[in-house]
Write a protein that binds this DNA or RNA. Structure first.
Length: 597
RNA sequence: GGGGGCGUAGCUCAGUUGGUCAGAGCGUCGGCCUGUCACGCCGAAGGUCGCGGGUUCGAGCCCCGUCGCUCCCGCCA
């Protein structure tokens, strides 16, 4: 007989009745009835009920056991008495009558229980992560994460992608997030940086002629955490392809994501064909570049209805500034004053002067509310028709320059839909966001900046781009990049682009953003050189693994799908990282500390 | 760096207008219990109400400061 077990705790069935078995595991739950005692023995595979009574030589040991002790149990499998089977357990038809119990690993009093669903403070959960990981939910999430990554790999490989490893110790890169630095012992005063993403490496892999790259890539960024952004490190399904257009990237990646979501979504519907929404349209319809398409509300421009209307506040704003627009947020089923007033109060809490509204009730043509009276029946009806609303519905209105109120309309749309219960949570709604602007105006520094990735190809023929006048601000700010995002349920899952593989276009692109050619040479010299020695057109994308797993596990926080996460202040409470190091270590690295007071 | 929320027993929380308000459930420990699976019953231990200061005859409660956790903004090409 094996030293520790003949079966796992999830294995025994009615077929095993009568056989002598050996199990090892944790004492999940102990129910001591005095004369008879039950132990739910748990391992990775499941639970098996162990029974002991005074006839058993193991009884005395069994009485001493406590929660989470690790034990080896020998016994005979027997059918549970009629009426005591547990249909909730795969092993629920049988139990093991213990003849011998050996304590393999006793446990002192637990800082948090494994059994039960009791919520525990994050700090304790992180410090005793191994206990938390024994709990069913986290254990299941982590296993699901592994299965998802397996599935991603399988799907990528079946499309001819090949997995490459890229360096972890590399060079600090300008632009982007703050780097994690690693001091060099051999080169006093110099530092490696951990890669924020293998961006340049994957492009170099294409330039090296490998054609289809992917990697489950660790990425490191020293930025502050969010619920959906781990501090420090996270993983991407990093992808790059040669000789491709945007459509080719979409055709390669969309089936992978759709497939993995369909596989792990537990039957929840997944968008069959991801719609493509231009960045500008996303802002106008949803108030954000990562719209939650489970929310059916789409905003509309209703400026024309308010121009020269009886609602003087909006009419005079429109008259005084051609940039002023009025947007409507339709609120189906929101047609009552209590709801409208509540939303108005919420808006004021958000720092807006207020949220004008019209709502439509039975037998009240032209709608109700102060705004309706002022614009009049005809305009009110025209708006109701444009918005496709009916009796029982409402619409909210914001006026001003879109760039000033846009950061408010996204949350307003989300709030209204949430309050009205318009969001079907049990589905995965994907879309591509395309046509991102190449540049944006930096108001503080009065200059043109890259809007996103400086390596993206501008969506303009090279000859035309090279002829651009850097002073032609309007044209430059109107330029699109061949850059795209994937958004699912309002979560930005990935970002990608067709890369700028033409050195002269790259130089021009950086020049427009105010970077001297010498700066470009200094910062991206290696890359520029590689592009000038025969670079294929190429592009790619990098879906965030942690966020995919989070969505598929139905979790709201990345820490629920990462094995050993850091807390929000980027500390590992279990390992005690970051930690101080010895003076000797510092000396070898030529580092002297200069700590804040 | 900034803002919001939270902080009462090991855990989850209640605590009214500032006046028996030091409480419940779970857990732990002890006792009883031969069919439970959130076992049950009886009992016990366990709290500087995050910390410091202030107002008051009196503070868990009000005020100021501070620390911790969390969510958000900044940041995240």
């Amino acid at each position: 007989m094996h030293r520790y077990r003949t079966h796992t705790c999830g294995a025994l069935r009615a077929d095993n009745i009568g056989s002598t078995v050996r199990l090892s595991g944790w004492c999940h739950r102990i129910r001591d009835h005095g004369g008879v005692l039950f132990i739910d023995l748990r391992d990775h595979y499941g639970l098996t009920q162990i029974v002991a009574d005074p006839d058993s030589p193991a009884f005395k040991t069994a009485e001493k056991l406590r929660a989470e002790w690790v034990v080896r149990v020998d016994g005979r499998v027997r059918r549970r008495p009629d009426g005591t089977e547990n249909p909730d357990l795969p092993t629920g038809a049988v139990e093991v009558f213990a003849t011998d119990i050996e304590v393999l690993g006793p446990a002192s009093e637990l800082p948090m229980p494994v059994f039960g669903e009791q919520e525990y403070p994050e700090e304790i959960r992180l410090k005793y992560r191994f206990l938390d990981l024994r709990r069913e939910r986290l254990h299941r999430n982590i296993m699901k994460r592994g299965a998802i990554i397996d599935s991603l790999r399988r799907r990528m490989k079946s499309q001819g992608f090949f997995e490459f490893q890229t360096p972890i110790l590399t060079a600090s890169s300008p632009e982007g997030a703050r780097d994690f630095l690693v001091p060099s012992r051999l080169h006093p005063g110099k530092f490696y940086a951990l890669p924020q993403a293998p961006q340049q490496f994957k492009q170099l892999i294409m330039i090296s002629g490998f054609d289809r790259y992917f990697q489950i890539a660790p990425c490191f960024r020293d930025e502050d955490a969010r619920a959906d952004r781990s501090p420090g490190e996270f993983y991407q399904l990093d992808v790059e392809m040669s000789f491709v257009t945007q459509d080719d990237v979409f055709d390669a990646v969309e089936p992978v994501l759709r497939g993995v979501f369909e596989e792990f979504a537990d039957g929840k519907p997944v968008t069959p064909k991801f719609p493509r929404i231009p960045y500008g349209e996303a802002l106008r319809s949803y108030g954000t570049d990562k719209p939650d398409l489970r929310n059916p509300i789409r905003m509309q421009d209703v400026t024309a209805h308010f121009r020269s209307s009886g609602f003087k506040v909006f009419a005079s704003m429109i008259a005084s500034d051609p940039a002023v627009e009025v947007w409507a947020i339709p609120a189906p089923k929101g047609g009552n004053r209590a709801f409208c007033d509540r939303m108005n109060a919420w808006a004021q809490g958000e720092g807006l002067p207020g949220l004008g509204y019209i709502f439509w009730r039975e037998g009240e043509e032209g709608g109700a509310g102060p705004l309706a009276k002022n614009v009049g029946i005809e305009r009110s009806e025209a708006m109701r028709n444009q918005l496709g609303l009916t009796v029982g519905d409402a619409a909210f209105f914001v006026a001003g320059r879109p760039k000033d109120f846009i950061r408010f309309t996204g949350p307003a749309r989300a709030k209204i839909a949430a309050e009205l219960g318009l969001i079907d949570r049990d589905r995965f709604e994907f879309c591509w966001i395309v046509d991102f602007p190449m540049y944006e105006w930096n108001e503080e520094e009065k200059k043109i900046d890259f809007s996103h990735n400086p390596f993206s190809m501008p969506n303009l023929p090279p000859e035309e781009f090279l002829r651009l006048d850097p002073a032609d601000k309007e044209k430059i700010l109107g330029l699109k990049a061949i850059q795209y995002d994937i958004v699912c349920n309002g979560v930005e899952l990935s970002s990608g682009a067709i890369r700028n593989h033409r050195p002269e276009v790259m130089k021009k692109a950086f020049a427009i953003a105010g970077y001297d050619e010498s700066v470009l040479e200094q910062k991206f010299g290696g890359m520029l050189h590689a592009l000038s020695l025969g670079a294929p057109p190429h592009g790619g994308i990098a879906p965030g693994i942690d966020r995919i797993v989070m969505l598929l596990c139905g979790e709201e926080n990345l820490r629920e799908v990462v094995l050993f996460p850091m807390n929000q202040r980027a500390e590992d409470l279990m390992m005690g990282a970051p930690s101080e190091v010895t003076p000797k270590q510092l000396r070898e690295l030529h580092i002297r500390l200069n700590l804040p007071k």
